[in-house]
Design a protein around this nucleic acid. Structure first.
Length: 270
DNA sequence: AAGTGGACCTGCTAGC
DNA sequence: TGCTAGCAGGTCCACT
């Protein structure tokens, strides 16, 4: 589910409210992707510091380390002073003096992992291969062009890998490629510098727009206040198979790349 | 080394 | 109505 905009919207919706709290308890539900990696005792009593995002991960700083969280495909976080009793899909509660941060994740591809620091394992290991943040000033067309040189994978898969630039998942990769007029199956290493410039702009622009709109809610995404996103109403190609391209009127096509659906306009994207 | 395909897990929907 | 196949916003890992 959550790509960079959804994760960032989630972060913004609870970071200030939980800051300065003290952890009073931890509740675990069914196993997530990886074990927490420490005893609850290790966390209880710790002060909560800032919440930062790296790619699609969130880092909740605690006095003696922190929690690296990922929402997987179906995860969401809610922060509430008086949370309802945990449901079948509520697999992690961080109970604090200011409220409870709860991870709800039906598919359990999400994760909460304790680490002594962001730049120490296991957190550092999980983040090691991540590419640049899209809003990093170093991320531009020239840099993108250099990174893609010689790569034979499709540009869609190169974006999705997160090893060049983080944050664009399946929805926003499709949207950014449409915006840039680049065919998703084009070999990454065969995109000219001018088109890389357009693509870098499109990736940043698409993610920024989604952020402004509160992310995308296709089925179940909510921020930590329970608010839905509105980007999906503005999607140009994602989920629009067979409908007219908003630019040229040709039918939007759907294909499969790396076992993921890709939506594009074969006329506008070359 | 880069690229590919499978795996993880559950819920929902379309189609028979 | 009920079953089944197919699909879903992510990413790690083993294999070629």
């Amino acid at each position: 589910m959550p790509e960079l905009p959804e994760v960032e919207v989630t972060r913004q919706s609870f970071a200030q409210r939980i800051r300065g709290a003290r952890v009073t308890g931890v509740r675990l539900g069914k196993p997530l992707r990886w074990p927490l990696g420490c005893e609850a005792q290790h966390i209880v009593g710790q002060p909560v510091g800032e919440v930062v995002r790296r790619g699609k991960y969130l880092w909740v700083a605690l006095g003696n380390g922190g929690l690296l969280m990922h929402l997987g495909m179906s995860g969401s976080l809610a922060f509430s002073e008086t949370p309802p009793p945990p449901g079948a899909h509520d697999h992690f509660d961080l109970v604090t003096t200011l409220g409870t941060l709860r991870l709800t994740d039906p598919r359990r591809f999400g994760a909460v992992v304790w680490s002594e620091a962001l730049d120490r394992p296991p957190a550092a290991t999980l983040l090691a291969a991540l590419g640049l943040e899209p809003f990093d000033e170093r991320f531009d067309g020239a840099w993108l062009h250099r990174q893609l040189r010689g790569r034979r994978v499709s540009i869609k898969q190169a974006l999705l890998s997160g090893r060049i630039v983080v944050g664009a998942g399946n929805i926003y990769a499709c949207e950014a490629l449409f915006e840039a007029g680049i065919h998703p199956a084009r070999a990454a290493g065969r995109i000219s510098l001018p088109r890389c410039v357009r693509l870098a702009d499109a990736v940043r622009g698409t993610l920024a727009r989604a952020l402004q709109l509160g992310g995308s809610t296709l089925r179940d995404f909510r921020d930590a206040h329970g608010m839905e996103g509105r980007f999906q109403q503005h999607a140009q190609v994602y989920g629009r198979e067979g409908q007219p391209c908003l630019r040229c009127g040709a039918a939007v096509r759907r294909s499969v790349q790396g076992q993921r659906a890709t939506y594009y306009c074969a006329h506008c994207q070359t």
